[in-house]
């Protein structure tokens, strides 16, 4: 696995250097024989992006970065937005397969839904880059968070904060996303991995809030009522956990209950860290993911044959942000993506 990551990282980097070299070569006024073929490799190519839905920080961030690169290198970039509807997404993917773009960047809703279609797409000669959610079908590239690792990381932080004697108690609560969502299932797996080794930590509530802040708020409020000495809460998505944080604040326990959540690391995450809504936020670094996706796209378009049999997994380096880490540049905004 390590070597693959290394390989996947270095390859795009090499391209970057090559491109840089062209830039230098041009400055000297010498016509580089490699330049035209390289740039021509992008002409007339098509990259399609199939997110879960546009309109939230992750997909908007990736989309903006992919579009930026496409405009620079002159290939065609299309977004097919199924708006959270898995059936529409499956249909859009089916449709894309019949249209045969060069690359499809897929944001899977879960491990299952697109598995068979992705196999078909690869059989049809389309390169597939999966983003942030691995399908049961491995494809050329996977770029995204390691969800089990994310869960482990969050659990470790809570175990640290709520170790016997450190917090008011060893009671913690878990606020999942949608029960059946893969991101949720994998995170809970990671959390379980850690907690099974720490029997002293007591989970008093393990509820799903359906990615909905209001529901998270209601659940947290009830849990805090029942367990005024609650020590920590593991939340699964920062968008949803603004509600969890609001319930903590309303109970007057800001700073007393350790709330760790995760997300794409957009500006709102930093704001919530700063005002104490979140104690910690694990960021999977959308700008970094965007760069990785772009490198993968370049590598494939450059030489489809060479990358054909690759199976590259690029796990995003996770970053745990706390209030101390909040400084300009720690979180991204749509404007900061290209700086």
């Amino acid at each position: 696995m390590r070597s693959r990551v290394w390989f996947g990282r270095v390859l795009p980097a090499l391209f970057g250097i090559t491109l840089l070299a062209f830039g230098v070569a041009r400055a000297d006024g010498i016509d580089d024989p490699l330049r035209a073929p390289t740039l021509n490799a992008f002409k007339g190519k098509t990259v399609a992006f199939l997110p879960l839905s546009m309109g939230f920080d992750l997909t908007e961030g990736w989309g903006a970065m992919m579009k930026h690169q496409a405009d620079e290198l002159g290939y065609k970039f299309e977004i097919r937005d199924p708006n959270w509807n898995t059936d529409a997404g499956a249909q859009a993917l089916t449709q894309l397969i019949s249209e045969k773009p060069d690359i499809i960047v897929v944001h899977n809703p879960d491990v299952q839904s697109y598995a068979r279609l992705l196999k078909k797409a690869e059989a049809a000669g389309i390169a597939i880059i999966q983003v942030n959610m691995k399908s049961a079908t491995p494809t050329q590239y996977y770029v995204g968070a390691d969800w089990i690792g994310l869960g482990e990381r969050a659990a470790n932080e809570v175990v640290k904060a709520c170790a016997p004697g450190k917090g008011p108690s060893t009671k913690i609560a878990i606020v999942q996303g949608a029960l059946t969502a893969a991101a949720s299932i994998y995170q809970i797996k990671g959390v379980d991995n850690v907690l099974s080794k720490h029997p002293e930590i007591k989970v008093v509530s393990n509820q799903a809030a359906d990615w909905d802040a209001s529901k998270a708020r209601a659940v947290t409020q009830t849990v805090l009522q029942q367990n005024p000495d609650l020590c920590g809460i593991i939340g699964f998505w920062d968008g949803q956990d603004t509600g969890t944080g609001a319930a903590i604040r309303e109970a007057g326990k800001t700073g007393k209950v350790f709330l760790i959540t995760s997300g794409g690391g957009a500006k709102s995450a930093c704001e919530n860290l700063e005002n104490g809504t979140f104690s910690a936020d694990t960021s999977y670094d959308v700008p970094g993911q965007g760069r990785d996706i772009n490198s993968a796209i370049r590598a494939i378009l450059e030489d489809k044959a060479a990358t054909k049999d690759l199976r590259v997994v690029l796990y995003t380096p996770l970053r745990v942000l706390t209030k101390a880490d909040v400084k300009p540049g720690a979180c991204w905004t749509p404007q900061s993506l290209f700086e």
Partner: peptide, 8 residues
């Protein structure tokens, strides 16, 4: 599709 997704 052989897809047992929760959103089906």
């Amino acid at each position: 599709l052989s897809s047992a997704g929760a959103e089906t």
